[in-house]
Design a protein around this nucleic acid. Structure first.
Length: 573
RNA sequence: GCACCCGUAGCUCAGCAGGACAGAGCAACGGUUUCCUAAACCGCAGGUCGCAGGUUCGAAUCCUGCCGGGUGCACCA
């Protein structure tokens, strides 16, 4: 259990004791009590709102409760001071030995510092990327990919069992278009001059597939009717695209556990429909024309509908088209039904903003299928605006010159892409500027953090070079500013817990920037005053203590970078 | 028309499942380098948290309405 959680327990225990002894009325609901570092460090190490939360229930003024609690807490050996402040906050300052012990814990745990205890029975499925297998991964998908991947790692680090999943949309009409586009490339490979008609996939990434087919089969599918080749071409094209997509993702250090094919759903679709039907959630109906749309080609059609409005959706959603065939949505419902059958206790999906309209119907479907037992949390990430030197970087899919994820990773590196994708809340639109991304300045948080880590690594080398004979570190030699850095590092486990709870991996990126700043500030004190340097040749005792601090900070930086999948460089050049 | 997201310092953004005087970077201004990597640091300045109500001991944070910007909206995937 980490330090902050420990003190929450301690305070809860004291509150229980106060109720038992009659200092407080019995039966108080103390769930709102929190223990957190105060925003202003001068207030102390920890603050609790206990008195204010309980004032109403206990029918006592908050400061009175706070004073009583403070008296109890100040008797503890690990508490230096307990002071009541403001409207009834209770500020605690811990004995410095607590922080010294915490630094020892950081050093002992290494990159596992902050890892949450395994949560038995928590099995989370997180689906992300899931781009259509009709081309390489587009740069527009990289935000969802990084957020999804970092979130998966965060949830795993926090102690959950996590499955990373990709849904392959390999069943629809667009895959037919893909197969036909490949057929054109196949004919082209055999010497025919082809033009790619409107509505086909023009990208030259299909050229090698056509060539491979030409090499293998010669010209026997050239004039053949679709019935003879379409199915096979689809399979080959999708397999090739998925290989390509996996490679693209690997370049961003993303590897998913399950690649689930829409085609493989088979009877699951009917099964899911029957489950919903059995619960009275399926009916035949005609949807109204959506207002505000032109509706020129709209006509009323009877369809098989899922009553998603009963779960807060704006409209019921078609499971079958008017011709009786399944809709895409039906497949998605069945896919989520399959996930539920696999026994996950929570589902997470990461959607791009362009799919935000699907959130309500999917949560409705999962709520219906699981009877509200399994939550589906859909994270919607806003779009990325690609920039170059402050100018919008236009891309056109039609012209076939669209920017792929691979282009971006090759240009700036995976660490930069991953980190920058986490430098804003997902709900906030993000501008990604190629020019700035490769800059190595304070403005580029990746380098800022890696630079701190590199400096820490250099300290170890420096001490060896200087030939200092280091004693066991005596952490009581650390100065107050140095201890403040330990406190920040010690908040990593709490940050993991909260970021995982909120499912917000971007908090890790912001924390890293804070931690790096704390280290850089200490480092620069050595520039102003040689006595403040980490490595002091004629003072082995201080050097040992400060190197222990540096190693501790380095551990936490590595741990946090590891969770978001960014390398911790030990040198920068 | 409806739904979702956003509106915090000149700019770009944080603000931890309501808490103590709202924070950081950039830009601006003033400093720090015979010194462990100055790819860094320190200082100064800058805000009616879009507007109006409401809930609360307490609201940037929750609720309602409005204004402004973005995205999406049967039968495609």
């Amino acid at each position: 259990m980490h330090l902050h959680a420990r003190f929450l327990d301690i305070i809860q225990a004291e509150l229980a004791a106060m109720q038992a002894s009659g200092d407080l009325p019995q039966g108080l609901d103390t769930r709102g009590v929190t223990v957190e570092p105060p925003r202003d460090a001068s207030h102390g190490d920890l603050a609790t709102n206990a008195a204010m939360v309980l004032t109403k229930q206990a029918k006592r003024p908050p400061r009175e409760i706070a004073v009583a609690l403070a008296q109890r807490l100040s008797r503890r050996a690990d508490v230096a001071t307990a002071e009541v402040a403001g409207p009834g906050f209770l500020n605690l300052t811990l004995r410095r030995a607590e922080w010294e012990a915490e630094l020892q814990a950081i050093l002992a745990a290494g990159v596992d510092y902050g890892r949450g205890a395994a949560k038995p029975g928590s099995r989370i499925n997180i689906e992300y990327v899931s781009t259509n297998p009709t081309g390489p991964v587009h740069v527009g998908h990289c935000r969802g990919a990084v957020v999804g991947d970092a979130l998966a790692s965060l949830l795993a680090f926090a102690g959950n069992e996590v499955t990373r999943e990709y849904y392959i949309n390999d069943a629809g009409g667009q895959v037919d278009v893909l197969a036909r586009s490949v057929h054109l490339r196949y004919r082209e490979a055999l010497g025919e001059a082809v033009t790619i008609p409107e509505g086909f996939y023009p990208g030259d990434y299909l050229v090698p597939i056509g060539e491979a087919l030409a090499a293998e089969h010669g010209d026997r599918f050239v004039g053949a009717p679709e019935s003879e080749w379409l199915k096979d071409f689809r399979g080959i094209a999708v397999a090739a695209m998925m290989d390509r997509i996996r490679e693209d993702l690997a370049a961003l250090a993303i590897r998913q556990d399950v690649y689930f094919s829409e085609n493989s759903l088979g009877p699951r679709v009917q099964e899911a429909l029957e489950v919903l039907d059995a619960r009275g959630l399926i009916h035949q109906g005609v949807l109204e024309r959506p207002k505000g749309t032109s509706g020129e080609d709209w006509e009323p059609r009877p369809q098989t509908l899922f009553c998603s409005t009963e779960f807060g959706d704006d409209s019921d959603r078609a499971m079958k088209k008017s011709d009786g065939s399944w809709t895409y949505f039906a497949g998605d419902v069945a896919y989520h039904y399959d996930k539920l059958q696999r026994g996950y206790t929570a589902l997470v999906n990461v959607f791009g903003a362009d799919h935000a309209g699907y959130v309500k119907r999917m949560t409705a479907a999962v709520a219906a299928l699981s009877e509200g037992r399994v939550p589906l949390d859909i994270k919607v990430v806003q779009l990325v605006k690609l920039m170059k030197n402050g100018e919008p970087f236009k891309m056109s899919k039609r012209a076939g010159n669209f920017v792929t994820l691979r282009d971006v990773v090759d240009e700036v590196g995976k660490d930069v892409v991953r980190f920058i994708m986490l430098t804003k809340r997902p709900e906030s639109p993000l501008e990604f500027d190629f020019a700035k991304a490769v800059e190595q300045t304070r403005e580029n948080p990746v380098f800022y953090v890696q630079y701190a880590h590199a400096r820490i690594a250099s300290l170890g080398r420096k001490a060896v070079e200087a030939g200092i004979d280091l004693p066991e570190p005596d952490l009581s030699l650390l100065l107050p500013e140095e201890l403040a850095a330990v406190k920040l590092a010690a908040s990593w486990p709490r940050l993991v817990e909260q970021a995982a709870e909120a499912r917000e991996p971007h908090r890790i990126a912001f924390y890293l920037a804070d931690l790096a700043a704390a280290f850089h500030a200490l480092w620069n004190m050595g520039n102003d005053d040689p006595a403040r340097r980490f490595v002091i040749a004629d003072d082995p005792a201080t050097t040992a203590a400060r190197l222990a601090l540096a190693r501790g900070l380095g551990n936490v930086i590595r741990s946090a970078l590891g969770v978001i999948g960014v390398e911790a460089a030990s040198e920068l050049h």
